[in-house]
């Protein structure tokens, strides 16, 4: 279904950011994408802050996927 395709993409993208497979993404992991994605360090910082909804400095798969589904389907559909 569409839903599982989105879940699969979410995991894929999460793993791109979580290079070491820690199970979470840190600010530093995000900055490592600087060379791979056409985003500035500041933009990546912004992305991290936006996704880190509880502000604890760690992005979990759950936080990441709610950000992704917001991007896919708009706010409020999680």
């Amino acid at each position: 279904s569409d839903c599982s395709a989105v879940l699969e993409k979410t995991r894929e993208f999460f793993q791109i950011c979580d290079i070491e497979g820690k199970g979470f993404i840190t600010r530093r992991d995000m900055q490592r994408l600087n060379g791979e994605l056409p985003l500035s360090a500041e933009e990546l910082e912004n992305v991290f802050d936006t996704l880190d909804t509880d502000g604890n400095g760690y992005l979990t798969l759950e936080e990441f996927s709610s950000g992704f589904s917001e991007f896919m389907f708009g706010p409020g559909v999680v």
Partner: peptide
């Protein structure tokens, strides 16, 4: 509402980020 403005700006950044990831996976080899 300044919060709405901030949310919209962040949405743009997120869209940019996820679009980049999407094109990274599906883009040119």
């Amino acid at each position: 509402d300044p919060n709405m403005k901030g949310a919209a700006a962040n949405e743009g950044v997120l869209a940019n980020f996820f679009n980049s990831l999407l094109s990274k996976k599906t883009g040119a080899p």
